[in-house]
Nucleic acid binder design. Sequence first.
DNA 1: GACATTTCCTTGAGTGCTCAAGTTTATGGC
DNA 2: GCCATAAACTTGAGCACTCAAGGAAATGTC
Lengths: 146, 146
Amino acid sequence: MSDALDAALRLVRAQAALVRRFDARLGGLHGVSLADFTLLLRLGQAPGNRMRRVDLAEALGLTASGVTRALAPLERIGLVTREPDARDARVAYASLTGTGRARLKEMRATAEETAGDLFAAPAWGEEEVPLLAALLTRVGGTGPRA
Amino acid sequence: MSDALDAALRLVRAQAALVRRFDARLGGLHGVSLADFTLLLRLGQAPGNRMRRVDLAEALGLTASGVTRALAPLERIGLVTREPDARDARVAYASLTGTGRARLKEMRATAEETAGDLFAAPAWGEEEVPLLAALLTRVGGTGPRA
DNA sequence: GACATTTCCTTGAGTGCTCAAGTTTATGGC
DNA sequence: GCCATAAACTTGAGCACTCAAGGAAATGTC
């Protein structure tokens, strides 16, 4: 097998393992999945803590349909609210609530801790983690810092 | 955000983009998903081109349930057959058929090509692809060459 | 100012996975 | 030999995503 195919298949496996770890920690402590956390994190980074659903889809690499379905339970538990746009009646913003911001802060601590464990020394050198991130950015998608 | 969390989130995004590309190519040319191809590839690597379902699950990072469901359509289209074990009536091997081996060979060419495009020069240096693979191996799961 | 087109979003149907529970067969202790 | 336990597998229910279709509102054209 070529190095390229090997790397591609390893990427798939590594992601599955990583998602399982994050889901277990975030789910156990806060009742959310990694996908939920990622969505909330993006909202938290946006100006005014709110985004159009279509932009959220783009940022997360989902379809608009996926965003609609992902937001539903987050709205139900009060972390996100739906806000209409005064100028354009087609758009509905997704906006973090006060509760959402507070809960996100806690989730973020858990996520940082989980990521820290995953990439802990001595297995991982100081410079290797940003190196991995840089290589992954070239593979595709938009990074969380973009 | 820490480097570690950034890398973790980028990994998720990169995988989604990669899977989409492989699914499009493999689906278009051979009617299978990347998950299907990975399963067939593992079978093709196994001695006698066959494996117990439980070992297949372990190798793929799926549950036994997931393997049952993944094999069903592959059996239906004749790429894989079910073989009982003479010694232990509980186990059912999944075995590549002759057609399966032939089709796998074609799929593999497509997959190699897709991976080659994805990690093509000049964006990717000669040594960077194995480096990425090595870093990913440390993240988790079992690699395709393990 | 009516009409086609585009944009934003939702919904129905389908897919591919999970977990929990159940069936069947093998194994070990006595 | 019997029974409890364990192992291999399947099945039902549920979840998270996709695509395709459709509704409603904005935009461009004439």
